[in-house]
Design a protein around this nucleic acid. Structure first.
Ligand SMILES: [Mn+2]
Ligand SMILES: [Mn+2]
Ligand SMILES: [Mn+2]
Ligand SMILES: [Mn+2]
Lengths: 218, 218
DNA sequence: ATATTTTTTTAGACTATTCTAAAATCTTAT
DNA sequence: ATAAGATTTTAGAATAGTCTAAAAAAATAT
């Protein structure tokens, strides 16, 4: 069974590696996990030993099949707990990450399948990210930046490009959150700002700067 | 902030120490936690250093005020999670302990207060044990062994003396679980067995052996 | 092609938790 | 009161994870 720490490394490698399974660097991992590169090297040797990663000195890492499977299970747990926190415990979607970071390490398959059922088998987490199924399969949903959509577009907010607290708080003030319905009424040519209809009832104008950082899907 | 391990030691000392705050022995702790006495001694020195316990070499341990407060918070979390698992995720009351053992270490006061609210501020866990309030206060509910009650008694199952799987499984088969309503209809003098009415609708006979291991409250 | 900079690894050390084996202390039974 | 037995502590070592400082390798810029 993996330790807390090993799980965090594997998850980080998955996130840095992306769909294309790109090589991940020692420094990259150390930045995300806030450890020193020397510590990362130690852990890489260990995870390689246990065959969770492909690792050749000085050449970067990728996950093995086994490692990727493990990563997807951790991500599944993380995102299911996030749904629980937001849907059931009324947390705001931008304050659940830290707690889910702890909950994702609870070991019990039965717990997770019961939680999944309790939540109604959600496909996406509160940030619009897909929740892997028990086999680790993920539904990929095409997403676009709102600024690239035409007048008349009709869809749903599925995430943000920029994730600074300042931006998230501003979105919150506008009542824009993942899952919110959006349609584009008009585009102001002068500054690229958009007149939108939110949740089919609120009309408002958002700047190009905002539209450039909002992912939507139809 | 306490580590996982320190929390387990403090909780164990609390449980062994009881209401009367009795001295707890090194061997006692080592048995519960399945570590060697030498490891316990090491941890006792550390917890004493951090003033969670009163510890004098060769003389046993008790919790300080600070230690007791900490213990009650951990127990509060443990029991609230147990309620969640049983009430919301449909776990059986005898299969939640191990998972709660992990969940009790999640650090977030906000999470616990939200969970408490979500569960309807329960006063007792699925095993009939009291849940400390946010200040660490516990409602003590007088409990008696069913075998000591008179014919005509009317109350609720609040726990078991014996906790072997064999006994719990048998109770399960009889549909007797914490929270179940019980009244005594008749006592058979010959063998001490009891004719009882369960949940106000099922009549059955239980042996003296069973009645001797069931805690009830009125 | 060589020098400089950046990245990565190694070497050695520290903290947390655990262990085994041996010594110290306490308890109990003559 | 003392010997035997049980409990507890110490000493020394292991593993997991982290760190700093220094060496090695790779990337980049003349
Ligand atoms: Mn984590
Ligand atoms: Mn998320
Ligand atoms: Mn625990
Ligand atoms: Mn319980």
């Amino acid at each position: 069974m993996l330790t807390h720490t090993e799980e965090n490394y594997i998850k980080t490698i998955y996130h840095l590696s992306g769909d294309a399974n790109r090589d991940v660097s020692t420094n990259g991992i150390s930045e995300v996990l806030k450890t020193k590169p020397a510590s990362v090297t130690d852990m890489l040797r260990k995870l390689s030993e246990k065959s969770y990663i492909h690792y050749i000195k000085y050449q970067g890492v990728t996950l093995t099949k086994k490692g990727k499977k493990e990563a997807l299970q951790i991500i599944r747990k993380h995102r299911l707990w996030e749904v629980f926190l937001v849907d059931k415990l009324k947390f705001h979607w931008d304050e659940v990450h830290e707690i889910a970071e702890q909950l994702e390490h609870i070991h019990s398959n039965l717990l997770i399948s019961r939680l999944d059922e309790f939540l109604g088998n959600p496909a996406f987490d509160p940030h619009g990210d897909p929740i892997p199924d028990p086999q680790g399969e993920i539904t990929i949903r095409k997403k676009y930046l709102l600024c690239d959509m035409a007048v008349g577009f009709n869809g749903v907010v599925v995430g943000m490009l920029e994730t600074s607290p300042a931006f998230l708080q501003y979105l919150d003030r506008l009542n824009i959150c993942p899952g919110a319905k959006i349609s584009i009424k008009e585009r102001i040519v002068f500054d690229g700002s958009l007149e939108i209809l939110l949740q089919e009832d609120k009309q408002l104008v958002i700047s190009y700067e905002v539209a450039k950082n909002l992912y939507v899907s139809d």
